[in-house]
């Protein structure tokens, strides 16, 4: 029954109708198998996201400035979004004014800048170093097992522990300063704190990147390299004309995953610097800003988390469009190849 299409070669005309019938039947059973996952995801992701969007257009409950009565909110239009994007706040008389300094709303563009800075720098570093790791690990040498085991250690350590570990390394009297005979305030200086985050993140995530790239490298047949060697191609030329183009699909997916992950960075800066440094917000990412806001106004926090979500979605969309990385299609092709 189910084997019909597998056994009959694709050139015979007969299985057309049966294939479509089979497909209909399988669509029905697939629906029931997938339903629990979709329902559960709708509850844990769909519900919060819809609620957040609705709330982002609501006013915070409070005292009405004109009447002096307590009001529960109401439609706020795009005020919550303007609060973040244009630093507009409500004055005590209910008018729209520019946010006073120190208000969280004023921190939006700083947080967006910090988030993008972290993303660009860490992803570039992790890609370059990760590719190098992967190339080394792809060679045969004694102790390769040890390297592959070692590379999983930073990945396995919880980010919270990683943050505490680097917090200790970067302490004023810590080993980083002692080793290089410096006296840098790693967790409070504006740029030093940013680089502390970048160093810790690169340490933790490069091995994971290397593993993903290594998996792509291993799909390249050895004969291709042998041929290049016989033709006398230099190592550099082999890398640019063979390795890079062939590993590109795997590399692009890995980079996309990393970018999306870096854009929502929270744990590391939250624990390592508390989002502080410089004037107190040198390492405040968008996620940290949302969390700072949650306890002082749901609606405003909802607007900010929606903005964050949209930014991440847009970046993914642009990345896929510009670089032509189609994760799902790559998947499907892979699956067809496997069948």
């Amino acid at each position: 029954m189910t084997t019909a299409t597998d056994i009959v070669p694709p050139t015979t005309p007969a299985p057309r109708a049966s294939k479509s019938r089979k497909r209909n039947r399988e669509t029905r059973s697939a629906l029931w198998l997938i339903l629990p996952t979709i329902v559960l995801l709708a509850i844990v992701i769909g519900y919060p996201i819809v609620t957040a969007i609705i709330q982002s257009f609501q006013k915070d409950p409070g005292l009405d400035a004109a009447t002096g009565l307590f009001v529960t909110g109401g439609f706020a239009g795009v005020a919550n979004y303007a609060h973040w994007l244009f630093q507009q706040c409500m004055s005590s008389t209910g008018q729209t004014i520019a946010c006073p300094p120190g208000n969280l709303g004023a921190g939006f563009w700083n947080a967006a800048g910090v988030t993008f800075f972290f993303t660009v720098v860490t992803v570039i570093l992790e890609t370059v170093i990760g590719t190098w790791f992967a190339i080394i690990m792809n060679r045969t040498f004694r102790g390769r097992g040890l390297v592959r085991a070692a590379i999983l250690v930073p990945w396995a350590i919880p980010t919270a522990v990683t943050a505490k570990l680097w917090y200790f390394i970067f302490a004023f009297a810590g080993i980083a300063n002692a080793l290089f005979h410096t006296s840098i305030l790693w967790t409070s200086d504006e740029w030093a704190s940013r680089f502390a985050i970048i160093i810790a993140d690169t340490w933790k995530t490069t091995p994971f990147m290397a593993l993903l790239i290594l998996a792509g490298l291993q799909l390249i047949p050895e004969e291709v390299y042998e041929a290049a060697r016989m033709d006398g191609a230099s190592t550099f030329r082999t890398f640019t004309t063979i390795t890079l183009p062939l590993v590109k699909p795997a590399l692009m997916v890995a980079i996309l995953f990393r970018i999306l992950d870096a854009l929502r960075m929270y744990d590391l800066p939250a624990i390592l610097t508390g989002g502080g440094g410089g004037n107190g917000n040198a390492t405040t990412t968008l996620s940290i800003l949302v969390i700072k806001q949650v306890r002082s106004g749901y609606n405003s926090a909802s607007a900010l988390s929606t903005i964050t979500f949209i930014i991440i979605f847009l970046v993914a969309f642009i990345f896929v469009r510009v670089l032509g990385t189609n994760v799902v299609r790559t998947q499907e092709a892979q699956q067809k190849g496997a069948k």
Partner: peptide
């Protein structure tokens, strides 16, 4: 479906916090 599940895995956890905190 694959795209949805992949999208869900890339979803920023911070977007869940506000509504869940309240709920």
């Amino acid at each position: 479906v694959l795209g949805l599940i992949l999208g869900a895995s890339m979803f920023p956890g911070v977007a869940l916090i506000t509504p869940l905190f309240q709920l």
